[in-house]
Amino acid sequence: MSKLHITTTVNGDPAEFLCEADDSLLAALRGPLGLTGTKEGCGSGDCGACTVMLDGSMVCSCLVLAAEAQGRRVETVEGLAEGGALHPLQQRFLEHGALQCGFCTPGLLVAARALLERNPDPSEEEARYWLAGNLCRCTGYDKVIRAVLDAGRDLRQDHGEKVA
């Protein structure tokens, strides 16, 4: 059987790739698209390391078929920084030391951005429940949560400045 030809948008740019019918979106991102920032920790939707946005919804890319990206928008960690400037979440993760090994970090960053876009002023508890699907074994989450709450503050301030 020949491969499927998929046309999609990745981090704002048009993209296309070939895949098998049973390939995951994660496999397509990491393979033909060459975007290895998205990680596989479990392949069963339990760890969140492969978190990406699909048409604005947060998904585990290991549980989405590659073919489902046809005609849709995919956003990954590689699209988080704008040009050479880090996203406030990336900056706060670095300042807080919110990563140790850094393997879960791409998924956490994508998930945290989705949270702050929906709720720019989350409580600690809201942040903890939103990120409960992203396992981190190194940090105990303390600095991750602090970085996310601080980045929310940065984004609110930026937004306030733009409105003013």
Binding site: G37, Q90, L94, G102
Partner: peptide, 20 residues
Amino acid sequence: RPVRPDGADKVTGRALYGTD
């Protein structure tokens, strides 16, 4: 508490791990 030298690579998805 400076930013780690490998920090930017690890928050942008550029760092190469075992399967990368």
